[in-house]
Design a protein around this nucleic acid. Structure first.
Length: 266
DNA sequence: AATGGGACCTGCGCGC
DNA sequence: TGCGCGCAGGTCCCAT
């Protein structure tokens, strides 16, 4: 469940810890997570490279390397980056020039590592929507007006806007008082404006608290993120709404568990 | 264009 | 207690 706040948290910690360090060696415990190139090339081409810059695009991290290549990391569901890491239980461990490990862990093996010449050529980035922070309210309204689809799956559509996943979509809609099944285009002007504000506010607050540790996510240091205690609806089925005490409902929407307050959200 | 489903994976928690 | 199953949700892919 790493979404924008979790990945941004990791990015900021990476900048403080591994920037300008050299990757001395790559140890691959499970080659399944390496999507390109071959594991042999992956190892060979990363050895000796210095981490020059770290970018985040939506939920993806990009390490810019001194050899001109880019290491693209997507944590998907259960991926973790941990530093300093223990090495052993990792899927891939990057041994750095400071003698410590930057570990990529991933219980479910859905995460992806790619070493590429140009990250912008990857299809994922070509179709990635703008981040909420890169939009103004009028552009956001225009995007919504072009879509008749249900608002909640739309917020999670990374080609629409990038960075929002299932957890934050639920929290944002609660704060905007919008039912997850409402049609995007048919929201009122005021609702669209409030929604836009709450997207940015929720993401910023979550970043402030180091993200939400549900299931597998941890910060780079291995510590949990503390935003969970601020969740209003996510994973609270049957518990009283913190505003009106109505039991929180859970429905399936677009195949995803969707939590909301049936009274507050209309 | 929108929507639904399945696939990729593993491990947890639930009911029987 | 043990076992099988549903479910978690990011992304891609296919069918309707």
């Amino acid at each position: 469940m790493p979404e924008l706040p979790e990945v941004e948290t990791i990015k900021r910690e990476l900048e403080k810890t591994v920037l300008n360090k050299k990757i001395k060696e790559v140890i691959i415990y499970n080659p399944f997570v390496i999507k390109q190139p071959s594991k042999e090339k992956f190892k060979k081409e990363l050895a000796g490279a210095v981490i020059k810059n770290i970018l985040r695009k939506g939920k993806a991290l990009i390490f810019e390397l001194s050899n001109g290549k880019f290491l693209v990391v997507h944590l998907r569901m259960t991926g973790q980056l941990v530093y300093p890491g223990a090495g052993k239980q990792a899927r891939v461990s990057f041994k750095l020039s400071d003698g410590k490990n930057l570990d990529f862990n991933d219980r479910r093996l859905l995460g992806e590592l790619r070493l590429v010449d140009n990250w912008e050529n990857l299809q994922f980035f070509k179709t990635l929507g703008l981040e909420p922070f890169g939009l103004d309210v009028n552009k956001f309204k225009a995007l919504l007006n072009a879509k008749k689809t249900k608002i909640k799956p739309l917020l999670m559509d990374q080609t629409f806007i990038s960075g929002v996943g299932n957890l934050y979509a639920a929290e944002v809609l609660f704060r905007a008082k919008i039912h997850p099944q409402r049609s995007a285009a048919l929201l009122s002007d005021k609702e669209k404006e409030l929604l836009f504000k709450e997207i940015k506010d929720v993401l910023n607050e979550a970043i402030h608290f180091g993200g939400s540790s549900v299931d597998q996510y941890v910060q780079l240091s291995g510590k949990p993120g503390n935003y969970v205690k601020h969740h209003k609806v996510y994973d609270r089925e049957g518990k009283p709404c913190l505003v009106c005490k109505t039991p929180i409902q859970r429905i399936a929407l677009g195949g995803r568990g969707t939590y909301f307050c049936p009274k507050c959200q209309r």
